[in-house]
């Protein structure tokens, strides 16, 4: 069974508008890391919403084709069940952090799942060790730096223990040092066989990809091994 399978995915926000995504098909095995590269407005964010079930559950529009997450069809599986399989880290961590302290934020999703407090505590300990945020546990998210916020946002996603993680431009707001920390965690996740979809226009995370494709006006225009794609794309643009 494929970890993620996308078949003929077409999506437009309004019925008579030009589709944002046009007839996409691809699949990922468990443990694969896929890079999605493209300009602003190429449909990258829309694709990430389709992959994690926000489309069609939350945003209306016309979706054709199908997305399967660990064999589950996103159209027929409720969103809260999908979130146990797949997590998404957004570009701007500010909106992703909700609670008065980092620790409460990590606990929030688990509390909603009715996890017993002792297990929540164990999970928080494990995640904080993994992402190296033990010293931030009691902090107010408002007082953290951009890089720290993104680390915490990633930790809140990891706390739900998903087998697939989508990074939607998660590195673009960070400076090099902060980006390296996230990259190191991506590397660790790769070693633990987590499937990743990394959406990126900066190429900062290219070392993580197993393979990549270029998205242009909602279509896959170029796919293959990372080296070919990344070389071709970034050398032509800069």
């Amino acid at each position: 069974m494929k970890a993620l399978r996308v078949e003929n995915l077409t999506y437009s926000y309004a019925a008579n508008e030009k589709p944002v995504l046009a007839d996409l098909s691809f699949s990922l095995n468990q443990g694969d890391a896929l890079g999605v590269i493209g300009l602003n407005g190429s449909g990258k964010t829309t694709l990430s919403f389709c992959l994690c079930g926000i489309i069609p559950h939350y945003l209306r529009g016309t979706m054709k084709g199908s997305v399967y997450i660990n064999g589950k069809d996103t159209r027929t599986t409720p969103l809260h069940q999908l979130t146990l399989e797949i997590g998404i880290v957004l570009q701007d961590p500010n909106i992703q952090l909700l609670m008065p302290t980092v620790e409460d934020d990590l606990a929030f999703g688990l509390e909603n799942q009715n996890m017993p407090p002792q297990m929540i505590g164990e999970t928080i300990d494990r995640i904080c060790d993994l992402t190296g945020i033990n010293d931030l546990r009691k902090e107010n998210p408002n007082h953290l730096s951009g890089g720290e916020k993104q680390l915490v946002a990633l930790s809140t996603v990891l706390a739900m223990n998903p087998s697939i993680i989508i990074f939607d431009e998660s590195l673009s707001m960070l400076d090099d040092r902060a980006a390296e920390k996230i990259l190191a965690i991506m590397q660790k996740l790769k070693e633990t066989n987590t499937t990743m979809v990394i959406i990126d226009h900066t190429g900062k995370s290219r070392s993580i990809y197993d393979h990549a494709f270029v998205l242009k006006e909602g279509m896959i225009v170029n796919r293959g091994s990372t080296e070919e794609i990344v070389q071709a794309y970034f050398s032509s643009e800069v």
Partner: peptide, 10 residues
């Protein structure tokens, strides 16, 4: 350049 792509950067 925070949220602009390589083309707009140019």
């Amino acid at each position: 350049t925070k949220s602009i792509d390589t083309l707009r950067k140019k």
